[in-house]
Design a protein around this nucleic acid. Structure first.
Length: 907
RNA sequence: GCCCGAAUGGCGGAAUUGGUAGACGCGCCGGACUCAAAAUCCUGUGUCCCUCAAAGACGUGCCGGUUCGAUUCCGGCUUCGGGCACCA
């Protein structure tokens, strides 16, 4: 019988499920290893061949670590709250839970076919009340905490209240605190809570009827759905992520992540060190201090004007009576624009004069204050000093409104554009004149601080996360309103379950506002729900202890599993999930609920698998199709053709005619008797007929072939197109492997002793696999496997085949399990040990001696292992002839040889 | 515009610290088995020159540099991919 993957895979998948082969428990006798995949959002489309790429990679690593004696936690679950299910519910009226559950079972079926070693008893779903109880619990903890800058960590808010009562803190004295009403106290505390409510400018998406976080918006459109997004002021729940900016930045240095991913997070956090300077500003006779933020105080002598953000709170105060109408008109226009319009109009410059004048604290000069949308209220102080000569945005503004441009770096040309580089010598700058720009930056900062004109200040681009969504399918907030004061639901009453509603259609108010009896202790409950990232922020902790009803994770489970050792997922979460998760974890760490500060020690981003589309070329106005090589002779239209009726870029003509009624009577112009299709790499999508379903591959070739082939395609981090045509190679490999054990139905493994060359082939592979898996270079491991098989020829010896089976098991677990049992083993191959590498068995017959001349030039000489010193010398002398010939020089002094050093002098 | 990353045969991709470029696989050419096909096995396969072979020349996106020697290091480009984008 040939390699019958179908029955083998079905048999072992069933057995693994029955025996609970992949269940894990805390076991202090073994070192732990936690391998995590980013859990999927179960969409209606099911999995295509690109999704399992990362899952296969992590599964190989998990199985490998297990063979190396680690107790491996490898769980899976579903990120099952989210917009698509709700959008679908709006269209069809079906409850999101129904579609979500159906999608999950489809995902599970597809995943199961691939043979993953997940411990499914630990599965989590973010929409499960038993799970979101802990999402709500964490929110309550954040509500009841503040960030203490002195301790540099989150502390219970009760400690802050005590400070208010006794010593006072910030602007609050014991007296003011005592005198404050309940509502006032609540408002004061809102300014400190980690989870707080505040009016803020948000990304409002009318199409979705909800607000969105910055990372849910791209190019002014919602990532989900692609609806336009506009700015709007609203009362929203927020998470004080910005308090953690510095720790999120510093923590990156301790992580084993790729540099590009760390760089993305650094950019997103956007630390910038500068100075705040106060410009006293005169407006209709009164003086208002305006604080600006700049990283270039050294350019303060080149400031001909200042600019305010249109939505800055200072705008009304700094608008003169004469300019009032113009300013109000401008601010109104800016507000009307959507985010998308603002972006598309980046090139055009707008603004209005406020009527007030700021006084440069260094020069005493009076400069006009303008208002323009290129200054953002949310960053720095919402006000800037403009340096048109040395900042391109200020330059464009100055040009547009004919404002002066004052260069303060000697010799630079600002007639066409600003000079933004930090190089050259200062001029027109008082005490800074003649200094190098880099020195001037520091000198100016020192001067400003020493003279009380400003102070050093660090700003971050990272904003607090907007945490409210005006949607249905998410976690309800455990918050109720008592006389307008937000109060926490008692912890013992969690989970606060999502209520039923009669319709999902957006009506302008949040769906939960329509829920019946949406009250707590007789008071109304919060009607918005939490965003998608809420449930995914701490799910990795829940896997450690998924059924614990008394805690998110017990101290024992957390103390054993600690954090994720290896996290595999897509790079699209670089600035969303991976920031929020780190924040969430650090918060829990501050309060002592978890023992590790960083959740994901090592992270690998798998590349995307793109589709490979095929095309046929129809001659315009006919139903005639011309093969790729001949299409230049005709006027043709390119048409996507289903890749399932194309093999190795050759079109199956009959299948094509049957594919679509309009092609029934198609005619073809062939080359060499065949129709060759064109191809292109595109996103995998239904509309391009290039989706490859893993189920189909499993049916045709088997799960082991799919696993092997996805890894063989290339380095895991790289994006690459799926092309089924190479899959025969790895399938052939598995069949050859099987044939080492079986000739037809006969089991042909022998107890014969292995020869040195067979042992060498085996141990070379052991060394290679060990090294490659640790480096996630799976494609070369598979190559090494094929080489080993070529080297072994027709070896049927158990001494070789048994370790070989173990080596194969992380990649192709089903066939390995089958063959492992055929060798008489009773336990699963995943409980075997990784073969011990013996370097002595792989020693080459010849030794390569590196030879150095003058400690610089290097050659190598290949000699038998047994070569004597004299033979080595002779070889090196011969080598030197070459050196003379090639380089025209010869000064040979030292030869270094592994194990011995021979001195040799050639004249 | 700014910041990362990449570029190697017909294709996916290999190549320790600079040391025989093209491993392994696909595809293709030829052969064996077969009435035939599929499957399987064997051989060849970077390009150019040549009837063939040998020999030779060229060859890791482009230009230049360092070196006896560069896919690898340095400088300058080009193209593609990804991220950020009025962040003062």
């Amino acid at each position: 019988m040939d390699y019958d993957f179908k029955s083998i895979e079905a048999k072992w998948q069933k057995k693994w499920a029955q025996d609970g082969t992949y269940k894990v428990k805390e076991d202090s006798s073994k070192p732990k290893y936690y391998v995590l995949d980013m859990f999927p959002y179960p969409s209606g489309a099911g999995l295509h061949v690109g999704h399992p790429l990362g899952y296969i990679a992590s599964d190989i690593y998990s199985r490998y670590k297990r063979l190396r004696g680690f107790n491996v936690l490898h769980p899976m679950g579903y990120d099952s709250f989210g917009l698509p299910a709700e959008q679908y519910a709006i269209q069809t009226g079906q409850h999101p839970e129904v579609t979500t559950t159906a999608n999950i079972s489809r995902y599970r079926q597809q995943l199961d076919r691939i043979g993953f070693s997940y411990d499914w008893s630990r599965e989590v779903r973010t929409c499960d009340p038993g799970f979101y109880k802990w999402t709500q619990w964490a929110f309550l903890k954040m509500f009841a905490s503040w960030y203490d800058p002195d301790a540099d960590k989150a502390r219970p808010i009760s400690e802050l209240v005590k400070r208010f009562e006794t010593t006072g803190y910030g602007a609050v004295t014991p007296e003011t605190w005592k005198a404050a009403s309940e509502k006032e106290k609540s408002d004061i505390l809102m300014g400190y809570r980690i989870a707080y409510q505040a009016e803020t400018s948000v990304n409002w998406c009318e199409g979705l009827g909800t607000v969105l976080a910055n990372d849910e918006v791209k190019d002014g459109l919602s990532v989900r759905g692609g609806f336009p997004v506009e700015q709007k002021k609203m009362m929203q729940w927020q998470l004080r992520v910005s308090a953690y900016a510095e720790r999120l930045l510093k923590g990156l240095d301790t992580l084993d992540w790729t540099d590009s991913l760390k760089e993305m997070q650094r950019n997103w956090i956007g630390k910038s060190q500068g100075t705040e300077v106060v410009f006293n500003t005169e407006c209709d006779g009164k003086t208002v201090p305006v604080t600006i933020f700049t990283t270039r105080v050294d350019t303060i002598f080149g400031v001909p004007f200042m600019v305010l953000a249109p939505d800055s709170e200072l705008v009304p105060e700094l608008t003169s009576a004469a300019q009032k109408d113009a300013v109000e008109q401008y601010v109104k226009e800016v507000k009307k624009k959507t985010e998308r319009e603002r972006i598309s109009e980046t090139k055009s410059v707008t603004g209005v004069f406020s009527g007030s004048y700021g006084i440069n604290p260094l020069t005493g000069e009076k400069v006009p204050v303008w208002i323009s949308e290129y200054v953002l209220a949310g960053y720095g102080t919402g006000a800037i000093m403009a340096v048109p000569a040395h900042d391109s945005r200020d330059y464009a503004f100055a040009r547009k409104f004919n404002l002066p441009i004052v260069p303060i770096i000697a010799g630079c040309d600002v007639s066409e554009q600003s000079f933004d580089a930090k190089e050259g010598k200062m001029c027109n700058s008082g005490f800074l004149d003649g200094m190098d720009v880099k020195d001037a930056i520091e000198a100016a900062k020192d001067y400003a601080e020493a003279n009380g004109l400003g102070r050093r200040k660090t700003n971050y681009r990272l904003r607090d996360a907007i945490f409210s969504r005006q949607r249905y399918w998410g976690e309800p907030f455990p918050i109720y309103y008592k006389d307008g004061i937000p109060c926490p639901v008692d912890e013992k009453d969690l989970p606060l379950e999502l209520p039923e509603i009669d319709s999902y259609k957006p009506t302008g108010e949040p769906p939960l506002a329509r829920a019946k009896d949406w009250t707590y202790k007789g008071y109304p409950l919060e009607t918005s729900t939490m965003p998608g990232f809420a449930g995914s922020s701490a799910y990795y902790l829940r896997y450690m202890d998924p059924h614990n009803d008394g805690a998110l994770v017990s101290g024992e489970a957390d103390g054993y599993w600690r954090n994720v050792d290896l996290y595999i997922g897509g790079t699209e979460h670089a600035t969303g999930h991976l920031i929020y998760s780190r924040f969430w974890n650090k918060f829990l760490y501050d309060l002592g609920y978890v023992c590790e500060d960083e959740p994901f020690a090592k992270l690998i981003n798998q590349g995307m698998i793109q589709g490979r589309s095929n095309f046929v070329y129809r001659i315009v106005g006919t139903n005639k199709f011309v093969s790729l090589g001949l299409k230049g002779n005709y006027d043709t239209t390119e048409i996507h053709v289903d890749i399932n009726i194309v093999h190795n870029d050759k079109l199956d003509l009959e299948a094509f005619k049957a594919w679509r009624p309009e092609f029934n009577d198609a005619e073809f112009i062939l080359e060499d008797g065949e129709y060759v299709c064109g191809w292109a790499v595109e996103k995998m999508s239904k509309s391009m007929f290039n989706v490859v379903n893993p189920d189909d591959i499993c049916n045709t070739y088997g799960a082991d072939t799919l696993r092997l082939y996805e890894m063989f395609l290339g380095p895991i981090e790289q994006s690459k197109p799926w092309d089924t045509k190479g899959i025969d190679g790895v399938n052939r490999f598995l069949r050859r492997f099987y044939k080492l054990f079986y000739d037809r139905d006969n089991f042909i493994v022998t107890d014969e002793k292995a020869t040195p060359s067979e042992l060498k082939a085996l141990h070379k592979l052991i060394a290679k696999e060990q090294e490659d898996i640790e480096n996630f270079s799976y494609n070369t491991t598979i190559s090494a496997f094929m080489i080993a098989l070529n080297d072994l020829g027709n070896c049927h010896k158990k001494e070789i085949l048994e370790p070989l089976t173990v080596l194969l098991s992380p990649f192709a677990p089903h066939i390995a399990e089958e063959l492992w049992h055929s060798l008489g083993n009773a336990t699963s191959v995943c409980d075997a040990s990784f073969p011990q590498y013996d370097a002595a068995l792989t020693v080459e017959d010849t030794v390569t001696y590196p030879v150095q001349f003058n400690g610089k030039m290097r050659f190598t000489v290949d000699l038998p292992k047994s070569a004597s010193v004299a033979e080595v010398e002779a070889a090196v002398r011969a080598m030197d002839q070459t050196a003379k010939y090639v380089g025209g020089q010869s000064i040979v002094k030292v030869i270094v040889v592994p194990g011995r050093i021979i001195n040799i002098v050639v004249k």
